[in-house]
Nucleic acid binder design. Sequence first.
DNA 1: CTGAAAGCGCTTACAG
DNA 2: CTGAAAGCGCTTACAG
Lengths: 345, 345
Amino acid sequence: MTKAKPTIVEVAADAGVSLGTASRALSGHPAVRDDTRKRVQASARRMGYVPNRMARSLRSGSSMLIGVIVPDIAHGFYGRATKAMQDVLEDAGYQILVMNTERQPERERAALQSLLAHDVAGILMASSGGVSEAPSVPTVFFDSLEPGLGYANVAQANKEGIDVLVGHLADFHDYRRIAYLGAPPALTSGIERLEGYRDAMGRRALPVPPELIVLSDGTWSPESGTSAMRDLLELAEPPEAVVAASDTLALGAIQAARDHGLRVPDDLAIVSFDDPFFGAFIEPQLTALMRDERELGRIAARQLLDALRHGAQRPSVEIRLPVELTIRRSCGCNSPGSTRIAAQA
Amino acid sequence: MTKAKPTIVEVAADAGVSLGTASRALSGHPAVRDDTRKRVQASARRMGYVPNRMARSLRSGSSMLIGVIVPDIAHGFYGRATKAMQDVLEDAGYQILVMNTERQPERERAALQSLLAHDVAGILMASSGGVSEAPSVPTVFFDSLEPGLGYANVAQANKEGIDVLVGHLADFHDYRRIAYLGAPPALTSGIERLEGYRDAMGRRALPVPPELIVLSDGTWSPESGTSAMRDLLELAEPPEAVVAASDTLALGAIQAARDHGLRVPDDLAIVSFDDPFFGAFIEPQLTALMRDERELGRIAARQLLDALRHGAQRPSVEIRLPVELTIRRSCGCNSPGSTRIAAQA
DNA sequence: CTGAAAGCGCTTACAG
DNA sequence: CTGAAAGCGCTTACAG
C-alpha cells in the first residue's frame, strides 16, 4: 500500500545507465566497472528495488521454484517433512510452492497442472494416487512411492517397522493373538504395512484369521481408528494386542478400548507405527516407532537438487529410512524410559 | 521428464489460427466463433497445453498469487490456519506461496521481499516482529497484530480467554495462588495474555507477587515450558494452580510437575490457553480453551479477498475470535465430559 | 566496459 | 470474428 514497486528501467534511469548495464551490475556480472556497479546498487537500494522474479524466470527459462504436493500440510508428518525440504531447498536458492490434495487424486492432478503452469523446476510429492506417468520436470516421490517413476523414491522402512512392532509384542511379551489395525492397502504405507504384518506373523508361525485384520476408511483419522477398533473389540475372541498402522489410528484405538472399559495395556496392548508428537504425554504412554520426517524431507529434497544439478537420466532409485522403536508403556512394558531398537531397511 | 511443454504458439499453429485467437478461444473471450474455439480447445487438450502463469501474470499484471508468512508451518496452529486460508483462496482462483520465518525477524523481512519479488497480489501474515511498515500490497495480519497496519488484523480474544481461565480457577475452584506460565511479552499473544492475567487477577483482588509470573524463552516449546515451570515449583510457597499461555507450554509444565513428583490436578492444577490436538488423550486430560484456527484462517483470507476486490482504503479493522473453555480434568474438575463457556471478545 | 536489441509466453487494445 | 502488433520486466548474446 506504500509505494509502487520500481522496475529495473527506473533504477537504470536513476543511476544514469542503460537497463542492460543495470541488470549486469545487479546480477554480479564481471564486466561492469566498479563505480558503475556501486552507483546502480545505491539507486536500487534507495528505491527499494526488488527484481521481478516472474520476468526473470520467463526470460532466463528457470523459475527457481519447486512444487511440493502433500495430502495435508496441517498434518504433523507432512508439515515437518515440508519444512525440512524447504530448509534444504532455500539454501540452494529455491522457493517452494506447496499444494494440498486432501488425499483426492483429482485434486492431485489439478495441483500438478498448477505447479507445471508455474513453471516449477522440479517436484517433490507424496502422492495419493493421482499420478500415472512421470511429470515433465524432475520429480522425487516420498512417503507414497511410485516405483520406477521419478528420480528417486524415499520412504520409511514400512515392512521392517511392522516386523519390529510385531516382534516386540510376540517375542518379548509372548502375545499370540495380535491384531492389525490399518488403513486400506491403497497407497504404499497402507500396502506395505499390511504386508509387513502378514509377513511378521507368518515368520513367527502365528495364525492370522481374517477377523484380526481391520481397516479404517483411508483418512487415517483417530475417528476412523476408533470405529475400526470397535470391530476388533466385539469379536468373540478379542485380540491380546493390536498393532496400529499410525499414531492417529492408535489414539483412536485407545479411545475405543477406553470406551469399552478396557485398560491399556493391562487388558489389551496397543503399539503404533508412528510416534505421535506428544507420545510421552498420552495415557498410557505409547510404544511406537519414532519417525524422522525431517530427515526424510531432507533426503528427498537433496535427491531433487541432485536431479536438478546433474539432470542425470539414471533409473529411479529407492531409499528407505531406518525405523526405531521407542518402548514406553502401552505394550505392557514397565520401563519408564525408552529403549531403542533400530531396524534398518 | 516426458514431453516438453507446448506453448500457445504451437497450439495456435496446430489449430490453424493466430496466437491471439488461440488465447481468446482458451480464455473464454466471447468474440470467437464457436467452431474455432472448439478446434483450439481440442488442440490444447491433445497437446497437453498448460498456460504459463508467469507469462500471463507478467502481461496481465495480476499474479493470482497470495503470500502467507508464518513462524512455523509445521506447528499445528499455523498449519491448520494456512490450510483454511488456502481453501478459501483457491476457491477464488488464487494460489498461495507459504514462507516460514522460524520466528526470526530477519527471515521475515527476507520472506516479504521474496513474496514481493513473486509479485503476490496480497499477503497474509503472522508476524514475528520483522515488519515496520505496511507492505506495498494489501496485507492482512493474523495471530500477531500490527494495529493500524494492513487491511485487517485478526486474532483470538487473548485477554478474555485468560480471564475465563483465571475465572474458572478462582471463582469456581477457589484457588487464590494462581501463577502464570507464559512467553515473553514480545508479540501480541505474549503481551495480551500476560496483561489478561494481570487484569483477571486484579479484578478478583488476588495478589500477584512477581515470582508468580514466569516466562519461557519465546520458542513456545514444551521444553521451554518445563524449564520455566521448574522455577515455579522451587518457590518457597509454590502456586496452587497454573495458567499456561499455550498448549505446548502446558505440556511442558505437566512434565515438570510430574518430574517433581506432583500429581495434577491433586497437588497442582494446570489449565492452558490453547487446546492441544490430542487434548483428550493427555494425562490428565487438559482443561483448556478450544481454538478454532480454521475459522481464524478463513476470516483472515476472506478479509484479504475483500481488500483485493474492493481495494478500499479503509482504516485497518481488528477482528477477534471468541474463545471457548473446555473443562476436563487438569483443573480439578471431575466431569468426564466437557462443558463449554464462551467468551466473546 | 556499455548500449541497443531481441525475445521469454502470454494478453489485449487496434484494425480490418 | 480474426490477425498483426505492442508490451509486461527482465536477461543475454551482439556490437562497439
